[in-house]
Design a protein around this nucleic acid. Structure first.
Length: 645
DNA sequence: CTTGGAGTTATTTTT
DNA sequence: TAACTCCAAG
């Protein structure tokens, strides 16, 4: 068992995939087949990575220093780590900046407007998402001819723009998420000795949620695993990231690329009751082109699934609240989860839970690190840490307002170009040229002095002290204090401060801030606090709860309107898998619900029950509230569309 | 030049 | 709602 070179575990929901991986990892260490430093375990989310690390540590009672040598993390995290160490070989400073999606979009927007690239079709948003997708697919600017652009006449413009964006990133010493992997591949091409060193080091590679790997991730994994033993686990029915380039193809290709691969199927489910299993199985059966497996359990039938029809979103939230309160004598809050399709749905539950004093925790939704005030504070730290970080400079130069707007920035940029340096150096140059007499130059020179002072402080003071100094002296704190009714801003900054005070390495903190969007304290699932989890379906993958509420089962929401209108049949299948993932999170009780109307921006729109509800075997469902009789057409089957267009 | 107000518009999922 | 654009006042 231990000696095969490549192993793929295809396993259904709840069959213990992650346990297989964790056990394997633990066994390698325990039996001395590998040292901690020789193992690389890749997961899709930071949360999953933390959990795996913790479980192994617990299983073996590992020492902290040993655990530290294990590489457990996301593809992107590993890529960043390798590029920090060797990026200079492909022309990046080790302190390169990592752009998140909103940074990326801002940069692309500016660039696209400058280069008059924007038109009705090529909005900045579409450019950004297309470029990300091409990177996921392993396509550089020069490879675009291979893709089918909607308008082939745009090919040259678009690929030129893509190339210009890449040049700009290089100039900024920055990488977006996609670059963290594609630049690794570039690095390995350029410096085979680096790749070889990693190959020799990582004799064992393990990959979780393999079905969600995209082309770049697959190539990254395959090249790294050339000489090592490789174990991947996945489930085609839980592929929910095709919009990020994941493809079923990877599962098929595995057998080709690793000819001696062993394939194991796990079909016994240890998680859910028979009812939940049959209900979710009946649903997923409606997808064509799956590898097909039937899960079974030795467990009990369990309670039937319930479907509740609510008047509107608020009513639905109240219903869930009622059920939670009814269950709470025998279940604790952290036994229960509310799962939704879109992050905007979380607010509804948040409000109602607040009203009824139900403790909750949000997973997915607006993340901590994405909040404006947190990004501002982090940008101050980034600039103090690395004066070359032009994106941070740009973000905070006028926050709080220093009356240095777009025109002033333009001037600074010109000065920076003149001295061939960063914006901060450009600012220094500009002050030298024009003196600091004028109002604008006075403000600018105070800003530069602040950053310089903070930079010097970093050598002697704790990062928290530096942050305090930055926010005090910049006037940021005063500006925040003036905001009435925005206690959340102050609370978030306080939380950031608490988090930062536990940090001893600012570089490591900034790395995590760039790669992990989760609120500090949320990343550990079992944090001891008894709270209901409110989560998007995507963020819930890999988790399980005794009681699950799956809300908003409506046409337009699940399946989502975007998927139905733009993605065609394949996208609807993905929505079905998403629903399947949600249902299979439940161990004992599953509550489904939908509303008759739902508020969409300002309007209250009528909503009809999701098609998926009709696909669940009726015998697994207990009560179904009387459907709206008066409305014609609700129960009438729509004309059937071909599954694949 | 910058800023704030008015008016408009568009809403998936995440590293 | 919130996130944008546009425009006129300061």
């Amino acid at each position: 068992m231990a000696s095969e070179r490549a192993l793929m575990v295809l396993a259904g929901a709840g069959s213990g995939k992650t346990r297989v991986l964790t056990r394997r990892l633990a066994r390698l260490l325990y039996q001395g087949e590998a040292g901690a430093g020789e193992i690389l375990a890749v997961t899709f989310t930071n949360k999953a990575a933390m959990e795996m690390r913790e479980r192994v540590v617990q299983l073996l009672g590992l020492d902290e220093t040993v655990a530290r040598r294990l590489w457990v993390g996301t593809f992107h995290g590993m890529g960043a780590r390798m590029l920090r160490a060797h990026g200079e070989r492909i022309g990046f400073d080790g302190l390169f900046t990592i752009l998140d999606s909103s940074d990326q979009q801002r940069l692309i927007k500016r660039l696209a407007e400058q280069r008059e690239m924007v038109d009705a079709y090529w909005t900045p948003k579409r450019l950004a998402s297309s470029i990300s997708r091409w990177k996921d697919d392993g396509l550089g600017p020069e490879d675009l001819a291979e893709t089918r652009l909607k308008f082939s006449r745009d090919l040259m413009r678009v690929s030129d723009f893509y190339a210009a964006y890449q040049d700009e990133l290089r100039r900024l010493n920055a990488m977006d998420f996609g670059d963290l992997l594609s630049n690794c591949l570039k690095l390995w091409d350029r410096s085979p000795e680096v790749l070889n060193a990693y190959r020799q080091r990582f004799r064992h590679i393990l990959v979780d949620e393999y079905q969600d790997a995209n082309k770049v991730q697959y190539d990254w994994m395959r090249r790294l695993a050339a000489d090592s033993s490789l174990c991947v686990v996945g489930d085609d029915d839980q592929l929910i990231y095709s919009w990020r380039g994941a493809r079923l193809d990877n599962i098929l290709k595995f057998e080709e690329d690793f000819p001696n691969a062993r394939i194991i199927r796990l079909e016994q489910n240890y998680r859910s009751t028979g009812n939940i299993l049959r209900a979710s199985g009946g649903l997923i059966d409606h997808n064509l082109g799956r590898k097909g497996k039937t899960l079974w359990t030795e467990g009990e039938e369990g309670a039937p699934i319930t479907i509740h029809v609510a008047e509107d979103g608020e009513d639905e939230a109240r219903h869930v609240t009622r059920e939670i309160l009814r269950l709470v004598p025998e279940k604790s809050f952290n036994d229960m989860a509310v799962l939704v399709r879109t992050s905007s749905q979380t607010r509804l539950f948040e409000q109602t839970f607040h009203e009824y004093n139900i403790p909750y925790r949000i997973s997915g939704g607006l993340r901590f690190m994405d909040r404006a005030e947190i990004k501002d504070a982090v940008a101050y730290l980034r600039l103090a840490y690395s004066s070359r970080d032009d994106l941070a400079f740009e973000r905070i130069i006028n926050v709080p307002s220093r009356k240095l707007g777009p025109k002033a920035l333009e001037e600074i940029l010109a000065a920076a170009r003149e001295v061939e340096g960063s914006l901060l150096e450009g600012a220094r140059h500009l002050i030298g040229l024009k003196g600091s007499g004028s109002a604008a130059m006075g403000k600018l020179s105070a800003f530069v002095r602040l950053i310089d002072a903070a930079h010097a402080m970093l050598d002697v003071e704790h990062p928290v002290a530096v942050l305090d100094h930055l926010l005090d002296e910049s006037g940021y704190k005063d500006a925040v204090e003036l905001e009435e009714r925005r206690n959340d801003i102050r609370e978030n900054l306080t939380e950031l401060r608490i988090f930062l005070s536990q940090v001893d390495d600012l570089g490591g903190f900034l790395e995590r801030a760039a790669l992990e969007a989760d609120p500090p304290g949320t990343e550990r699932r079992d944090d001891g606090i008894n709270r209901v989890v409110i989560s998007t379906l995507h963020a819930a993958k890999g988790l399980e709860f005794p009681v699950v509420f799956l809300a908003g089962l409506e046409e337009g929401l699940l399946p989502h309107k975007m998927a139905v209108e733009e993605g065609g049949a394949a996208a609807v299948e993905e929505e079905r898998r998403l629903t399947y993932v949600g249902m299979t999170r439940a161990k004992e009780r599953l509550f489904l619900s939908h509303a008759r109307s739902r508020r969409l921006f300002q309007r209250l729109e009528p909503a009809i029950a999701s098609r998926f509800l009709k696909e669940i075997p009726p015998e697994t469902i207990q009560k179904r509230e009387a459907p709206v009789m008066a409305r014609r057409g609700v129960g009438i089957p729509r004309p059937r569309r071909p599954f694949y267009s």
